[in-house]
Amino acid sequence: MKRTLLLSVAAGLLALAGCTTVNTVENAQKEGQRNMISDQRVITDTSLARKVAIVGVNSAMTPGGLLKAQVEIENHTHSTQHFLYHFEWFDANGMQVNNIISASVPEQIEGKESKFIYSVAPNPDCRDFRVKFIEAN
């Protein structure tokens, strides 16, 4: 009985040792207005979606007339999560525009952290975008 209890405590401590969460503070009355856009999601990796959730997507135009997209993500777990993401861009005809901007980017998010990832369209003809997330090994 004692041994089981000790083992349980040890396991609990080990599990907690890998957990670091993030505390945040921000201004309550927001000056800036985010142009939130409705999104369409396809979830095939429920494990990743449960851990790192997409909170919302907003977009804006850069001074040079390029579409800028920003995605807010949140880590629902207490441990650091590693994943890859990449943006795909499409022109007015729905044709994909390949560019280095579409390269996969390794990213990590701390436990319970909320953060933003963004990208800028490769050229002014781009109208739509898609973001893909892949869980790291």
Binding site: I100, I101, S119, V120, N137
Partner: peptide, 29 residues
């Protein structure tokens, strides 16, 4: 940039160049 990429400790690999270039381009644009 796939998830099997080799993380080489002592050298800059192709993924590092891609990440650095990607970051610079979107920031510059």
């Amino acid at each position: 940039g796939d998830k099997e990429q080799i993380v080489s400790l002592g050298q800059i690999n192709i993924q590092d160049y891609a990440t650095a270039a990607n970051d610079a381009i979107k920031d510059l644009l």
